[in-house]
Amino acid sequence: MFEALAWVAFLEASVRLGVPLALAALGETITERSGVINIGLEGSIIAGALGGALGALATGSAGTGILLGGVAGMAVAGVFAALAIGLGTDQIITGTAVTLGGLGVTGAVYQARFGVTGTALSLPTLDRWSVPVLSDIPMLGSPLFDQPPTTYLVYALGPILWYWLFRTSWGLELRAAGEAPDAARAAGVRVLKVRAVAALFGGLLAGVAGAHLALAHTGTFAENMSAGRGFIAIAVVVLGRWHPGWVVVAAMFFGAASALQFLLQAFGLDVPYQLFLALPYVLTLAALAGWVGRATAPAALALPWPRRR
């Protein structure tokens, strides 16, 4: 009985920790398929978390907070897009700076609003929606189908984005921009516009992921609370081979890796908790090392376009 409870708690934590990764990684999948790598994802997540927290606080509604978080994440991605796509600056350094800026600006805004020491915010949280029938399945039901609505957004976006990417002409144009921008351009695709929209969409989902952290996860905001999830999400995209379905699976796998600590604690293993904190990053590295040889990135990923000499 105790073991069953621990497993349910483990599964529940896996989904809870996997959902923000999945949201951010799905967005980044679309961005990268268009030929743009946005390392500034972390900046969008933290902006989404603060935007979501402030929005929920101002309106008293967690749902509005999620929307405002998405807008904040999109705004950060807009800065990235203006420089890296509009001006053609180096995507990797621009993204790194955008992450740094996101962490700095959110820290400054948070301290300006709540004081240098910071107060423990108590935010309205997202209600769980229980799916009829499905949530009654033993063991799996409540971890998978008695969750905040952002979880169902992930379940829905996986197939939708897959269809959109591989079965519609818009999806084809997006992939063309990422594989062969010159040819896409010759075929009439407006490459820069496609890439900008893809980057903004990635920022939107990363912002929602951040808002989920603040409003479904913890019910509070803390500086640097994104804790590198943006970078793990980018690794998740690689592990999911730029395919929306696999990306969701990979994200849940990392949610499970992060949730391992609850399971092992429940079984009374005494391992220093810092090792658990490091575990997701180590596992990501190991997975990249074992996996990447078989993955192929979009051919024009991270290359500025049009090429200027």
């Binding site: 955008v98 740094l100 600006v105």
Partner: peptide
């Protein structure tokens, strides 16, 4: 707040780029 400097550093990078 001293954290403003982090934002300034990011601004310098973006401005240089």
């Amino acid at each position: 707040p001293a954290v403003w400097v982090v934002a300034v550093e990011a601004l310098v990078i973006l401005a240089v780029l």
